[in-house]
Each structure stands twice: as C-alpha cells, then as structure tokens.
Amino acid sequence: MSAETVRFWLDGAERRGPAGVPVGFVLYAQGERILGWNEATGAPRGLYCGIGHCFECRLTIDGVRDQRACLVPLAAEMQLTRQAPPPALTFQEVP
C-alpha cells in the first residue's frame, strides 16, 4: 500500500501505521491479535468477521466506546484503547 504512514496510540503506547486502513487490520498485521476480552468470561477476542457484523473487535477510539475496529480507518494521532473487561460477574444468589 502506498498509504501515508501516521502516528497513533495503542493503550497509550506510540505506534505508526498506514492511514486509511481500518485499525483492526492495522493491528492484526502488527501482530496484535487481542483487541479485547469477552465481558462475561474474560476470554481474549480479536478480529473475526472483518465487516462489522460480529462486534468482537470493539475498541474505544478517541474516547468513544464500542467502535468496531474493522470499520474505522486509521487517522493521524488516533487514540486506540482496548476495553478492559468489567469486574468478573458474580451471578451469586442473594441470600
């Protein structure tokens, strides 16, 4: 690709990648397989369908939660943040 290389941030760490390519693909190609964790089980999740259907690649992008990484093109100075799984579900009976 002849796309312009731009600076972006993943979980606060500086990175560089091709502008205009969806961030999920950029991260996959850079070896970042894990894009998040299942909120119920904590199991790692990554790019899967690549066309916005499965919602497994959700990142917080520039402060907005639940953006599908496979649909959002990389732009200069973008802040990508993997969403930490919420505290483990207790599902305990209330006595």
């Binding site: 693909f25 190609a29 990554g46 369908c49 690549g50």
Partner: peptide, 28 residues
Amino acid sequence: TEVPLAMPGWTLPGVLAVGAAQTLWRGW
C-alpha cells in the same frame, strides 16, 4: 454475512471468518 462455525476454540484471536482473510489480503 458468514455463517459461524461455532466449534470449540472458535473465538480465539487468530481465528478468522474466511471473508476477513480475503479482505485482509485483497483489500489491504
């Protein structure tokens, strides 16, 4: 949309719907 083959381990990162691989390669 692709029909998921929901087999054991299919949610592991690095497991892709085949169309995603096509987009990865042909698209980017």
